[in-house]
Simulated assay, not measured.
Amino acid sequence: MNAACLIVYASMTGNTEELAQSIGKGICQAGGTVEIKDILEADVKDLKNYDGILLGSYTWGDGDLADEFLDFYEEMDGLDLTGKIAAAFGSCDSTYEHRGRAVDILSDKLLELGADVVADGLKIDLAPTDSEIEQCTQFGEYFVKNHMRGVS
């Protein structure tokens, strides 16, 4: 199996970037390939070139998508992601009423564009602990092993 995955993330403090790197590690451990891009280096057209898509963002303010992600998010409109396997993740803060809402916003957008969102959004509070880093690695492994079988 050589499931090609793309992780696109926005990170202000480095927490979501750390999640992205750990998920990518899990994808590789499960036999997939992964390209990890900061949102500012990503092109929305890239989403069409991968079997698996993972989008990550921290939640800003009281439940908003990261400012850096807004243009990319709007440019996604009209994309057909039918047949793509997808999931969302992000860092958040449980002290806010809408904990990790950016993850939900990204999951909803992926569904709206026809992607097969195969996992509940992964939400990690603030800086990830060692066990949460392991959870992210397992999330990446799960993504490939359970949902990308038969993808060449």
Rank of each mutant, 00 (worst) to 15 (best):
Q138T: 11
H147W: 10
H98S: 10
D130W: 00
E141C: 10
L19W: 04
E68W: 09
G26S: 12
V118P: 05
C136S: 12
E141D: 08
T16E: 00
N2V: 15
S22Y: 02
G150M: 11
T59M: 02
E132N: 06
V34M: 05
V118Q: 08
S94A: 13
N15I: 00
N49C: 15
A20G: 11
G78D: 14
A42T: 10
G31H: 10
I39A: 04
K109N: 06
D104C: 14
L47V: 03
D120A: 13
A88C: 10
N15D: 05
G150L: 01
G150C: 07
G32N: 06
G150I: 12
I133F: 08
I133R: 08
F72H: 05
T82R: 07
D120W: 00
A119V: 12
S94Q: 11
E17Q: 13
I133S: 07
L54Q: 06
K84S: 11
L111S: 15
E41L: 10
A3N: 07
V34R: 00
M148E: 05
R99D: 08
S152C: 14
I85F: 07
S57T: 10
L110G: 03
D67F: 14
G52E: 03
D116G: 08
S107A: 10
N146C: 13
E41K: 09
N15K: 00
K84I: 09
L110F: 01
G100V: 01
A119E: 05
T33M: 14
F69N: 06
L54N: 02
T82K: 08
S91F: 00
V151G: 15
C136M: 07
I36C: 05
E68V: 12
S22Q: 06
L111Y: 13
S107Y: 10
S11R: 03
D51N: 13
D104L: 08
A4G: 15
E75P: 11
I39F: 12
Y50N: 12
D130G: 04
D71E: 15
A42H: 03
G24E: 08
A87G: 06
G150D: 08
D38F: 04
F69D: 03
N146E: 13
K25H: 09
G150E: 13
L122W: 03
T13V: 03
L54D: 03
D62V: 14
D67W: 10
C136N: 01
A3W: 09
Y73H: 04
E141R: 12
R149E: 11
R149W: 09
A102P: 05
H147M: 14
G61E: 06
I39Y: 06
A42D: 05
A87F: 04
D108I: 02
A87V: 03
I53Q: 02
A88V: 06
S131G: 01
G140T: 03
L122R: 00
S91Y: 04
E132Y: 02
G52M: 07
E97N: 02
E18D: 04
E41D: 14
L65Y: 02
G56K: 00
I23R: 04
E74W: 11
K48L: 15
V34G: 06
I23Y: 01
G26T: 11
I27G: 04
T33E: 15
T137P: 00
L110Y: 04
L122N: 00
L40T: 15
M1Q: 13
I7P: 03
A86P: 05
G114V: 11
E74P: 03
G83N: 09
F69W: 05
D116C: 11
